[in-house]
Computed example of a mutant assay.
Amino acid sequence: MIQFKKHSGIYTLTTEQVLNVSLQEAWNFFSAPQNLEEITPKHMGFTITSTVDKKAYKGQIITYKVGVLPGIKTNWVTEITQVKDQRFFIDEQRFGPYKMWHHEHWFEDLKNGKTLMKDKISYKIPFGILGHFAQVVFIKNQLKTIFKHRFKTLEKLFNG
């Protein structure tokens, strides 16, 4: 399930997925930044360029290269701004393609060996009306593609 909303010039994307693994297993996978490459579509050329030898922690800076358009890669820098073990973590863009990017990753133990994972991404696009046009024509679909790919990949990894 992928939903988009717009409010005060900010777009919000929400998703959720039930994983057939314990909360501990889900947390171990998602709080390891290097696993992000595994769940991102290959065509985006996503690579982590910084050293990420630890699980996500408050203050952690992670740098990436990512394809924003065919043949065009950009640098992206995020900071893990909050972490509550086995509950949530938040990453925020410090430098990159968006004017603002705030990504909340939430995890809930469903008490039956399953975990509910929720994402909430609030983002603002630069360039005013041109940015809004890009959202309608391209960005929204690109984000849908990323999260559909992620959903399918996680289904194979955890629910297959």
Results as ranks from 00 to 15, higher is better:
residue 44 M to V: 10
residue 27 W to G: 11
residue 155 E to F: 06
residue 94 R to Y: 05
residue 38 E to C: 13
residue 4 F to N: 04
residue 140 K to E: 01
residue 130 L to R: 01
residue 91 D to K: 00
residue 125 I to C: 09
residue 9 G to H: 01
residue 52 V to L: 06
residue 155 E to K: 06
residue 135 Q to W: 13
residue 136 V to L: 15
residue 63 T to K: 11
residue 71 G to R: 03
residue 8 S to F: 06
residue 5 K to I: 12
residue 150 R to G: 08
residue 32 A to P: 01
residue 7 H to P: 07
residue 15 T to P: 00
residue 29 F to A: 00
residue 142 Q to R: 07
residue 135 Q to N: 14
residue 129 I to H: 00
residue 44 M to L: 15
residue 151 F to A: 10
residue 87 R to E: 15
residue 39 I to K: 03
residue 124 K to A: 13
residue 103 H to V: 10
residue 35 N to E: 04
residue 68 V to F: 09
residue 134 A to P: 03
residue 11 Y to M: 11
residue 133 F to S: 09
residue 145 T to G: 10
residue 64 Y to G: 07
residue 57 Y to W: 14
residue 31 S to N: 13
residue 126 P to V: 10
residue 41 P to V: 14
residue 104 E to V: 14
residue 21 V to G: 05
residue 33 P to H: 01
residue 7 H to S: 15
residue 129 I to N: 00
residue 48 I to N: 05
residue 95 F to H: 15
residue 71 G to C: 07
residue 85 D to H: 09
residue 150 R to F: 02
residue 90 I to H: 02
residue 65 K to A: 12
residue 160 G to S: 13
residue 98 Y to E: 13
residue 60 Q to D: 09
residue 68 V to L: 10
residue 112 N to S: 15
residue 101 W to H: 07
residue 94 R to D: 02
residue 99 K to A: 14
residue 27 W to L: 07
residue 44 M to S: 10
residue 147 F to Y: 04
residue 113 G to C: 12
residue 160 G to Q: 10
residue 8 S to Y: 01
residue 135 Q to K: 03
residue 133 F to V: 10
residue 46 F to N: 02
residue 52 V to S: 10
residue 8 S to L: 10
residue 86 Q to P: 07
residue 54 K to W: 02
residue 118 K to F: 01
residue 82 Q to M: 13
residue 46 F to Y: 06
residue 4 F to T: 05
residue 89 F to T: 12
residue 79 E to S: 07
residue 20 N to C: 04
residue 70 P to L: 03
residue 132 H to S: 14
residue 45 G to L: 09
residue 30 F to M: 10
residue 146 I to S: 00
residue 42 K to A: 15
residue 43 H to F: 15
residue 111 K to R: 11
residue 71 G to Q: 07
residue 141 N to M: 07
residue 91 D to H: 03
residue 66 V to S: 10
residue 40 T to P: 06
residue 156 K to G: 06
residue 124 K to N: 02
residue 147 F to C: 00
residue 107 F to C: 13
residue 45 G to R: 03
residue 2 I to W: 01
residue 90 I to P: 04
residue 35 N to Y: 07
residue 98 Y to H: 13
residue 28 N to L: 11
residue 31 S to T: 12
residue 24 Q to N: 06
residue 70 P to Q: 08
residue 110 L to Y: 02
residue 24 Q to R: 00
residue 5 K to F: 11
residue 100 M to E: 11
residue 106 W to S: 12
residue 137 V to S: 06
residue 56 A to H: 06
residue 28 N to D: 15
residue 36 L to C: 02
residue 88 F to C: 12
residue 62 I to A: 01
residue 114 K to A: 10
residue 3 Q to V: 12
residue 82 Q to N: 13
residue 124 K to E: 06
residue 40 T to L: 09
residue 8 S to N: 12
residue 102 H to P: 07
residue 52 V to Q: 08
residue 155 E to P: 04
residue 48 I to T: 05
residue 124 K to R: 11
